[in-house]
Design a protein around this nucleic acid. Structure first.
Lengths: 232, 232
DNA sequence: TGTACATCAGTGAACGCGCGTTCACTGATGTAC
DNA sequence: TGTACATCAGTGAACGCGCGTTCACTGATGTAC
């Protein structure tokens, strides 16, 4: 009985492997990702995958890079058509896009922002630029609000020397024209949003919270209101 | 060559298995937890574990319950000796204890609040009460501030009917005397704190943030200031 | 104090399984002449 | 238009491994008389 040919020939296999990998990560988790299982589902033999990825970890790394790219693009696109001066709207839209991307691709979200896969450590020189990039859109949005004098920095507590120096390092190496208060706000806005989203994707809310998305929207409004001042 | 006896006899094995399991989860992740590996490290044979746990998942469930208990106790104890009326101090202390517990037991933190283990789903009737309980201390702290008229609820956006009804369900079944605004605040304070903590335990901050704990402390101050009003 | 016996924690062999990775190979494709 | 040849994507067998779980068992312990 000849093996049925299930894949389109020639090179599309590299893409097909990644797509199947995502499917399996969604079902069994990234730690259980198996080249043999991917090959089985694609109707090829496992060694064929080695023509495209030297080993299992290389595939995981490729998936992580793709996830960061997809995330960054979703962030940038969400506000692309909004006027530069609609600061509150831009922040709100970014936050909604963050949530929506995570809901649409929970496996991708978990892979880049969830519990790290033990026994695998992503090569920092590959993932770190992607990670830093993904915060850029948020930083820029807050920075332009600050330039317009509409960023509410009153609630930021006095920073210790240590915090200041960390933020300055960041400022020097990635965002020379952005005030460190803006960087602090970006970090905390990100963390606040991430907290709710990761509780939701992980199903860790109390049972009664049947629609975490609705809670998210309220909290996002609160964050935007606390962060961006109304125009006067 | 006789096998060396490495464990204390009689019943302590149940505890020893859990301790070794935590060690291995820290190193290899919960998804890779292996009864054979635990047995190997303890100097016993794998089937011996079946005298205490009917299968692998039962062990994981026991670990999760333990983690929730440890977490809940750490929360309760942290504020046990503080005066009931020191609302801001109590919230601050709770937040610091949350962070400290997560740093001390990152594996436990990941197991109960991290990315769920794919292929394993905890029996809800066991973990859900524990999970709900673990929020209780926070809810009570905020509720007593609210009773004293010191909870800042001004920043809470108007709630949609849907959000109100979810919170009312929660209120009815678990916290009958607590206003739903307090429940909303508890949820969001938890999520904000969780966001920073999970980014830190997952090493997901930008490289420049060499001491995420310092950022956490600033942000926690900000949360407390926004949540609890100063006495007048 | 001494013996027979029940208990039961832990053993060791075995089961069937899936895994990552290697290696020599095949056979379709496309090019050079 | 036809033939010889190189390329290289994918094959299939094999490696050594660790896993969860089962089962009949052993041998130390403690109790009953």
């Amino acid at each position: 009985m000849p093996r049925q040919k299930m894949i389109t020939p020639h090179g599309n296999l590299e893409q097909a492997v990644k797509e199947t990998a995502w499917k399996q990560i969604a079902e069994f988790g990234a730690a259980a990702l198996s080249l043999r299982a991917i090959a089985r589902e694609l109707g090829i033999t496992a060694p064929a995958i080695y023509k495209y990825y030297p080993n299992r970890d290389a595939l995981v790394t490729a998936l992580i890079v793709d996830a960061f790219t997809s995330f960054g693009e979703a962030q940038a696109q969400s506000i692309a058509s909004l006027p530069q001066t609609a600061h509150a709207q831009r922040l709100m839209t970014l936050g909604l896009a963050y949530h929506q991307w995570a809901m649409q691709y929970p496996e991708r979200y978990h892979l880049i922002f969830g519990t790290p896969i033990a026994g695998y450590s992503a090569p920092a020189e590959i993932t770190m630029p992607a990670a830093a990039c993904s915060l850029d859109v948020l930083v820029n949005t807050l920075a332009s609000a600050q330039t317009a004098g509409l960023l509410n920095m009153g609630s930021i507590p006095a920073m210790t020397a240590e915090v200041q120096s960390m933020l300055q390092t960041w400022q020097n190496s990635a965002a020379p024209h952005v005030h460190i208060e803006v960087l602090f706000l970006a970090l905390t806005v990100w963390a606040r949003v991430h907290g709710l989203v990761s509780l939701q994707t992980g199903n860790q809310f109390p049972l009664f919270i049947t629609n975490p998305g609705a809670i998210y929207r309220r909290e996002l409004e609160r964050i935007v209101n606390e962060t961006i001042q109304l125009k006067n």
